[in-house]
C-alpha cells in the first residue's frame, strides 16, 4: 500500500479524477486533430486535383476563352501583390507607428477604433464600394489601381495592427537605454524600436500579402478579369488574377475550364505556402538578437 494514497476512499477518488484528466486530454487531442486534419485534406485535394493535369504551359500561356493557360493571371496576382505590398505596406506600417508611438489618448482611441471597425467590414462590401465608387463613379471602369485600392483597404487594418502590437512589444528598457545615450526620437525609432519590432512587422506584412493574394470578392468588380497581361492604365484595363478562374470555372461543363480552376488553386496554395515560409524565415533571421522568448 502506498502511503501517499492511504485510504481506499482517497484511492477511488483519485482514480476517478485521473480518469477525468485522461478524458479531457483525449478530447483536446481530438480537437487538435480536427484542426489539423482539414488542412491536410484541403491542401491534399487541391494537389491531387491539379497534379494529373499539370502542364508547364499553364505558366507560359495566357488564358484563351475558357481554356489555355494562366500566365497572365499569375502575373496579375504577383503584380497586384507587389502593389498592395507597397501601398498598404507604407500606409499600414506608418499608421501602426503613429498608433504605437505618437497618438495621444483620445485620438488613439478614435484611430484605433476606426482601424478595428475597418477590419470588420466584410470584403464584399469593399468590393461593392470599389465598384460603385471607382469603376462607375470615377468612370475608371475596371483597372488594376481600383483593385489595388480595394485590397489595400482590406489589409491596412491588419498591417497597422501587427505593426502597433510589435512596437508595443518592444521592451521599454530598450527605449530608456537609448534615451539615456542621448539618442533623438527619430533615431530611437529607426535604430531601436523598429529594429526590435521588425520581425513582427515583416511577419504581419507578409501574412497581409498572403491574405490579399487569396481575396476574390473585392477583385471581381474592380479588376474584373482579363486574358491579357496586366497594364497599369487607370481606365478600362482589367486584370486577370488567380482566384477568378476558381470561382468562375469550377463548375463549367468543359474540362479545360475546370482544369483552369484546379490549377489556379494549386498555384495559389504554392504562393501562399511560399509566403508563410518566407515570413517564418524572415522573422527567425530578424529576431536573432532578441532576448529568448521574444520576437
Amino acid at each position: 500500500m502506498t502511503l501517499v494514497a492511504a485510504t481506499p476512499h482517497e484511492k477511488g477518488v483519485n482514480r476517478a479524477r485521473t480518469a477525468g484528466d485522461t478524458i479531457m486530454w483525449l478530447v483536446c487531442g481530438l480537437a487538435l486533430a480536427a484542426l489539423v486534419l482539414p488542412i491536410i485534406w484541403i491542401i491534399g485535394q487541391v494537389i491531387a486535383r491539379a497534379i494529373p493535369h499539370f502542364r508547364w504551359s499553364f505558366l507560359t500561356q495566357p488564358t484563351i476563352g475558357n481554356g489555355g493557360g494562366l500566365s497572365q493571371a499569375v502575373l496579375g496576382t504577383l503584380v497586384l501583390m507587389a502593389m498592395v505590398g507597397v501601398i498598404a505596406g507604407v500606409t499600414g506600417v506608418g499608421a501602426g507607428i503613429y498608433l504605437a508611438e505618437y497618438a495621444r489618448r483620445r485620438s488613439a482611441i478614435l484611430l484605433r477604433g476606426a482601424t478595428e471597425v475597418l477590419a470588420g467590414v466584410p470584403s464584399i462590401i469593399v468590393g461593392y464600394v470599389g465598384f460603385t465608387a471607382l469603376a462607375i463613379g470615377l468612370k475608371w471602369k475596371f483597372s488594376i489601381w481600383a483593385a489595388a485600392i480595394a485590397l489595400t483597404a482590406i489589409v491596412i487594418p491588419y498591417i497597422a495592427k501587427t505593426t502597433e502590437l510589435a512596437l508595443r512589444g518592444v521592451p521599454g528598457s530598450f527605449r530608456e537605454g537609448a534615451e539615456a545615450l542621448g539618442m533623438r526620437d527619430i533615431l530611437i525609432l529607426r535604430r531601436i524600436s523598429l529594429r526590435a519590432a521588425s520581425s513582427g512587422i515583416i511577419t504581419g506584412l507578409i501574412m497581409a500579402l498572403a491574405i490579399s493574394v487569396g481575396e476574390t470578392a473585392p477583385l471581381l468588380y474592380t479588376a474584373f478579369w482579363s486574358v491579357h497581361n496586366p497594364t497599369f492604365g487607370l481606365h478600362n484595363s482589367p486584370v486577370g488574377y488567380l482566384t477568378y478562374p476558381i470561382w468562375t470555372f469550377y463548375n463549367y461543363p468543359v474540362k479545360s475550364a475546370t482544369y483552369l480552376a484546379t490549377e489556379s488553386a494549386f498555384f495559389l496554395v504554392i504562393l501562399v505556402g511560399a509566403l508563410i515560409i518566407a515570413s517564418r524565415l524572415v522573422s527567425r533571421r530578424l529576431s536573432r538578437y532578441m532576448p529568448l522568448g521574444q520576437g
Binding site: 476574390t216 476558381i246 484546379t262 508563410i276
Partner: peptide, 18 residues
C-alpha cells in the same frame, strides 16, 4: 497561419467538390 492563408475560394472549392 495556413488556415488563415488558404484563400476562401479554395475553401469553397473543397466544400463543393470534396
Amino acid at each position: 497561419e495556413v488556415l488563415v492563408g488558404i484563400p476562401s475560394v479554395i475553401y469553397g472549392l473543397w466544400g463543393i467538390l470534396t
